[in-house]
């Protein structure tokens, strides 16, 4: 029993990161029609910038804020330099090429800037693991889950309760109708990429203490987040979050069976979803919710 709880805690922590990445995928896709494969690099930028600044002696909260701002800026730059000139002119496949190119470029720049050595970031609140009904739960896990919950609540508030969020949802629902009420789709594209950069980086900052932060960590995290988004149907923010969490749990429970195949599992799930339920595994408002 405590073993199951242990795996569940790990799965939810891992799944939280995937959920944040998946949320970025869905937000950008819904607004711009581009699948942004640089999404995982935002997580890497968050982790690496925070690690670098902490090593340079900066207090962690300040380092975290700067890391998130830096990744948000990278998202904005990707939109302005990469996507904006191509939107409406390139096919979805062409847009994907741009984002894959951008991801490779960001990873390359990170390699030049920070080298191949992984960085470590101290736990936010050092101390022994917490005891949860017999399961030992790492303190950082609590940080990850709590931070994710807060970020999701804030994003929900942004989407549902602000003028900008309403305009983002309008773009997702019907781009022409959105333009006809005066919503500038390029401005909303910029907002969506900046937002997904920040959200991904927050995941990177809270993840860094329990993993090694390295220049190439974004690739796998990005792909896992993409699988999470596809599980949710790629069109719904709640679906993407649920898909990310589900994938994290699946991986955690598969670890005792074969930790070596943990990464392969995500792609088996991806193929299965694409073959069996290409519209996502959820029904009802989770699937239709858009962003």
């Amino acid at each position: 029993m405590s073993d199951l709880l242990q795996y569940a805690a790990t799965g939810i922590a891992l799944g939280s990161i995937y959920a944040l990445v998946a949320l970025g995928f869905v937000t950008v896709f819904a607004v711009t029609g581009a699948i942004n494969f640089a999404q995982g690099e935002f997580v890497m930028l968050g982790a690496m910038i925070a690690a670098q600044l902490v090593h340079a002696g900066m207090p962690l909260p300040l380092a975290a804020v700067l890391a998130v701002a830096g990744a948000a800026l990278a998202g904005a730059a990707l939109h302005e330099l990469g996507l904006r000139p191509a939107l409406g002119r390139l096919s979805p496949l062409g847009l994907i090429m741009i984002t894959i190119g951008a991801a490779t470029a960001i990873r390359g720049m990170a390699l030049i800037a920070w080298g191949t050595d992984p960085f470590t970031v101290p736990a936010f609140t050092p101390g022994p693991s917490l005891d949860l009904a017999g399961a030992a739960v790492n303190r950082q896990t609590v940080w990850i889950v709590a931070t994710t919950a807060i970020v999701l609540a804030l994003v929900w508030f942004l989407f549902q309760r602000t003028t900008t969020g309403r305009a983002l949802r309008a773009c997702a629902a019907d781009l022409v109708a959105a333009r006809l009420v005066g919503v500038d789709p390029r401005r909303m594209g910029l907002v969506s990429l900046t937002l997904s950069g920040a959200v991904g980086a927050i995941g990177g900052v809270v993840l860094a203490p329990i993993t090694f932060a390295s220049y190439d960590m974004g690739l796998m995290l990005g792909l896992k987040g993409f699988v999470g988004a596809v599980i949710g149907g790629l069109a719904s923010a709640p679906g993407a979050v649920a898909g990310g969490l589900l994938l994290g749990l699946l991986e955690a429970f598969a670890t005792p069976i074969s930790s070596g195949y943990k990464d392969a599992l995500a792609f088996v799930v991806l193929i299965a979803v694409m073959l069996l339920r290409p519209g996502g595994i959820f029904r009802g408002s989770f699937a239709r919710g858009r962003i």
Partner: peptide, 30 residues
């Protein structure tokens, strides 16, 4: 089109194109 709205022109397009998944109030506020 998005700039013309600010100049005082509104276009109610063919087949209405309301935001079907959003509420009536959200449509009007948009």
């Amino acid at each position: 089109a998005e700039r013309l709205v600010r100049r005082g022109l509104a276009h109610v397009p063919e087949r209405r194109r309301i935001f079907g998944s959003m509420t009536v109030l959200e449509n009007l506020l948009l």
